[in-house]
């Protein structure tokens, strides 16, 4: 087929959490530009299995950019060279025949490598869990739009809620800081009336859990916002800082 390419891949191979990993070189041939980056990995893995070698472990699930599993650090950037996409949405047409592509896992103390390109992101789950509950009335379903919410607030909350928890913000940040993720999770509730009763308690516990997990400190480089596949804004971090300051100054 014309337009198909041959590529050199340098992929991080690591047996398990405790072993030392290294970059292994693989040559892949006849890759269609219409394949997604993950499909190219499927092709490579098929070859490895046929040869009786251990396939490369990598996370993936929905393959439509909404699950946030496909955590690959490609040529020095999370999810590769394109903005606003996850790895499954990255196509091989973004590369040229003969390219060398370096693929590494997310690197952070809080995201230990499980195997090869697969990392443990349960730190994010623990941060969300530490946020606790939202008070809601039980009983009959309420009428739609029962609680008036300004359109701008609803939109901003929705933008924050678009976070898929992929961890690209941590991977991109030179300090491995999780501030963009945590601020998105804080903001999506802080902006809505339903989130008010526990607003200040929530920000304190989520920031506390974030610190405990061993993420770095934010230095406002903006790398997270630039690499976020869902375009989560830095203004969420400012909102979280404001809420955190208000919580610290106001609480007893």
């Amino acid at each position: 087929m014309s337009g198909n390419m041959n590529l050199t891949l340098k992929v991080w191979r690591q047996k398990n959490k405790d072993s030392k990993g290294l970059l292994e070189t693989y040559n892949v041939k006849n890759i269609s530009p219409d394949m997604s980056f993950l499909e190219m990995f499927d092709v490579l893995n098929e070859e490895l299995i046929t040869k009786g070698e251990e396939p490369i472990a990598f996370d993936h699930d929905c393959r439509e950019g909404i699950c946030g599993m496909c955590s690959m650090y490609i040529n020095g950037r999370p999810h590769g060279p394109k903005r606003g996409v996850t790895t499954c949405q990255l196509h091989m047409r973004s590369f040229k025949d003969g390219d060398t592509i370096v693929v590494e896992p997310w690197r952070a103390t809080a995201f230990p490598v499980i195997k090869d390109l697969s990392v443990d992101r349960s730190a994010f789950d623990r941060i969300i869990a530490s946020g606790g509950f939202v008070s809601v009335n039980t009983g009959n379903a309420r009428d739609a739009n029962n609680i008036p919410i300004p359109k701008d607030d609803a939109d901003t909350a929705f933008d924050a809620a678009a976070c898929i928890g992929c961890g690209a913000c941590v991977a991109a940040c030179k300090n491995a800081s999780a501030m963009l993720f945590v601020s998105a999770k804080v903001s999506q509730l802080a902006l809505l009336p339903q989130g008010q009763p526990e607003r200040y308690m929530r920000v304190q516990s989520m920031v506390g859990q974030m610190d405990e997990e061993g993420f770095g400190n934010c230095t406002n480089t903006g790398a997270c916002e630039a690499e976020c596949p869902k375009g989560i804004s830095l203004s969420n971090i400012a909102r979280m800082n404001r809420d955190y300051i208000a919580a610290g100054l106001g609480s007893e």
Binding site: Y73, E104, G216, T221, A223
Partner: peptide, 16 residues
């Protein structure tokens, strides 16, 4: 310390 193993390749100028 939050990133003990550094990346082999980084392209930070693309995002910051």
């Amino acid at each position: 310390k939050a990133r003990p193993v550094s990346y082999a390749v980084t392209n930070a100028s693309a995002n910051s």
